[in-house]
């Protein structure tokens, strides 16, 4: 089963992932999370590290418009993704192994859908 690292955010997307568990909405158990204050503070180097260490995919569960810090969060996070994907391509990795989506604090279903779909994709591409 493909391994996915999720960067979630403390105030917004993390509660959604918790909620998925609470509601017994299952997703692949090879999905791991690291929680940060804001999705626009994720360093591309961390993402690259995850790939190098053997993760098949990285998923950024972004704050989106609910970001408590700045309304520019979505575009900044998208910038990070774009920047990282350039590095990935340079390293010969499939850029689709990095994904992002805004996950609101009660969007558990959306989260499950995203990571399950992602896992399926990664499985297929292996």
């Amino acid at each position: 089963m493909p391994r996915i690292l999720v960067f979630s955010t403390e105030k917004i997307s993390d509660p959604a992932i918790d909620l998925a568990g609470l509601l017994k909405q299952h997703y692949p158990p090879t999905v791991y999370t690291i929680s940060v204050p804001c999705s626009s503070g994720i360093k591309p180097a961390w993402i690259i590290r995850a790939f190098e260490k053997g993760f098949d995919g990285v998923f950024i569960a972004a704050d989106g418009t609910d970001c408590p810090f700045s309304p520019t969060c979505t575009e900044k996070t998208a910038d990070i993704v774009a920047k990282t994907q350039v590095i990935m391509e340079e390293k010969g990795m499939d850029r689709a192994r990095l994904r992002m989506a805004a996950i609101c604090s009660v969007c558990s279903e959306a989260f499950v859908k995203h990571v399950s779909g992602f896992a399926k994709y990664l499985e297929g591409s292996d």
Binding site: L19, K24, H26
Partner: peptide
């Protein structure tokens, strides 16, 4: 977090 993101989320697959 091994409950909400562990036992509960993956109650279908205890080993994993």
């Amino acid at each position: 977090n091994i409950r909400e993101q562990g036992s509960w989320a993956h109650s279908d697959k205890p080993a994993e």
